[in-house]
C-alpha cells in the first residue's frame, strides 16, 4: 500500500469495464421500460369493449375520420391513455426524487403530505366552493404547492434535516386527512360520490383540456430534473459528502423539491392522487435497475407503465369499472408493509 503516480493498466481496465457494464445495464433497463410503456400505450388504444385494428388507431392519431374509432379512440381512449402516461411519469419522477434525496423509501410525496394538500383542496373545491372540474384542478395544484412550502418552512432550521421533513410531512398529512373527513361528513350524497372518485384517483374525466397543464409541466420540468440527477446522486452520499464534492446542497435540494412537488401537484390535479404510484415506482425500479446510477428517470417510466396497466385492469379485467386508484392502492398497501418489515431488518436506507 504505497502511493503511486500511475495505476497499472490492469486496474484501469477493471475500472473502465465496470463502468461500461453499469452504463449498459442503465441503457438496457431504460430502453426496456420505454418499450413497455409504448406497448402499453398502444394496447390501451387498440383494446377495450371494441377492438380497433392498429391501422384505424394510427389513422385517428394522424387526424383521419374513421367511423366509430374517431370517437372511441380519439375522444375517449387517447386522452385517457395520455393522461395515464403523463400522470404516471410525473408521479414516478417525483416519488423517486424525494425518496432518493431523503434517502428513505417511505419519503415519497404522497406519504409526506403533498398529495393530501391537493386532496383537501379538491374536496373543499367540489363540496364547499362548488367549483368546475378545471377550477378544482387549478385549486388543487396551488394548494399542493403551498402545502409543500409550509412543510419545508416548518422543517427548516439552518438547512432541512431529512427526518424532520418526513415527520413534519406526515403530521401535516394527518391534519389534512382530518380536513378531508370533516368536509366529507357534511356532504350531500351525490357530491360525495364525485369527491370520492376524485380522492381515489381516476382517469374517467380525462380530456385534452385537463391534460394540457400537466403535459406542459412534464415537458418543462423533466429536463430540469434530469439535469439535477448528477447532483442528486452526490446527495445520496450524505449532505456533507455532497457539499465537500462541490454540490451547492441547499440550492439543489430546493430545486429538486420544487420540480418534484410541481410534477406531483399537476399530476394530482389531472387525475387525483392515484394511490401509491409515487411511492411504489422508486423502490421497485431500484430493484429492477440495481445499484448502477440514478433511478429517477427509470422510475418515471415505471410509473407510466404502472398507471397504464392498472387503468386497463381497473376498466376491463374485473367486471365492474373501478377507478385506477383502487388497483394501485391494492398493490401499494402490501408493498408498504413489505418495505416496513424489510427496513426494520436492514436499517431502511434506500
Amino acid at each position: 500500500m504505497t502511493a503511486v503516480q500511475e495505476a497499472s493498466p490492469a486496474t484501469a481496465d477493471v475500472v473502465a469495464a465496470g463502468r461500461r457494464r453499469r452504463a449498459r445495464r442503465r441503457l438496457l433497463v431504460h430502453v426496456g421500460l420505454a418499450v413497455a410503456v409504448v406497448v402499453a400505450l398502444v394496447l390501451s388504444l387498440v383494446l377495450g369493449r371494441t377492438v380497433y385494428p392498429l391501422s384505424d388507431v394510427v389513422a385517428v392519431i394522424m387526424g383521419a375520420d374513421v367511423d366509430g374509432a374517431s370517437f372511441t379512440v380519439g375522444t375517449l381512449r387517447l386522452p385517457r391513455a395520455l393522461t395515464g402516461l403523463m400522470v404516471g411519469l410525473a408521479f414516478g419522477l417525483a416519488g423517486s426524487t424525494f425518496q432518493t434525496m431523503l434517502r428513505n423509501p417511505l419519503a415519497s410525496p404522497d406519504v409526506i403530505g403533498i398529495s393530501s394538500g391537493a386532496s383537501a383542496a379538491a374536496v373543499i373545491g367540489i363540496l364547499v366552493l362548488d367549483l368546475s372540474p378545471s377550477a378544482v384542478s387549478a385549486f388543487a395544484t396551488v394548494v399542493a404547492l403551498l402545502t409543500a412550502l409550509v412543510i419545508y418552512l416548518l422543517a427548516y432550521r439552518q438547512g432541512v434535516a431529512n427526518t424532520r421533513l418526513i415527520l413534519v410531512g406526515i403530521g401535516i398529512s394527518s391534519m389534512l386527512a382530518s380536513v378531508v373527513s370533516y368536509v366529507l361528513s357534511g356532504a350531500a350524497a351525490w357530491d360525495m360520490q364525485v369527491a370520492m372518485r376524485w380522492l381515489t384517483g381516476n382517469l374517467n374525466g380525462a380530456t385534452y383540456e385537463r391534460l394540457l397543464p400537466l403535459l406542459l409541466a412534464v415537458v418543462v420540468l423533466t429536463p430540469v430534473l434530469l439535469r439535477l440527477t448528477r447532483d442528486l446522486e452526490a446527495l445520496r452520499l450524505g449532505d456533507q459528502t455532497a457539499a465537500a464534492l462541490g454540490v451547492p446542497v441547499e440550492r439543489v435540494r430546493v430545486l429538486l423539491i420544487v420540480c418534484a412537488v410541481a410534477l406531483m401537484a399537476f399530476g394530482t390535479a389531472a387525475a387525483g392522487p392515484i394511490a401509491f404510484v409515487a411511492f411504489l415506482s422508486g423502490p421497485i425500479t431500484a430493484r429492477i435497475l440495481g445499484p448502477v446510477g440514478s433511478p429517477v428517470l427509470a422510475s418515471g417510466l415505471f410509473g407510466a407503465l404502472l398507471v397504464l396497466v392498472a387503468d386497463f385492469v381497473a376498466q376491463y379485467a374485473l367486471g365492474t369499472r373501478f377507478p385506477v386508484g383502487v388497483i394501485t392502492g391494492a398493490l401499494g398497501a402490501p408493498f408498504l408493509i413489505y418495505l416496513l418489515v424489510r427496513s426494520q431488518r436492514t436499517g431502511g436506507v434506500m
Binding site: 463502468r19 452520499l237 450524505g238 459528502t241 445499484p291
Partner: peptide
C-alpha cells in the same frame, strides 16, 4: 472542491453500490 477534499465522519454508501462506482463519485 478541486483543491480541498473532505471525508466527513459518517458518509452514506447507497445500497449495493460497487466500490469503483463509489470511488468514481469523487470525480464529481
Amino acid at each position: 472542491a478541486r483543491t480541498l477534499g473532505l471525508l466527513p465522519q459518517s458518509p452514506v454508501a447507497p445500497e449495493g453500490i460497487a466500490v469503483a462506482d463509489l470511488v468514481g463519485r469523487g470525480r464529481h
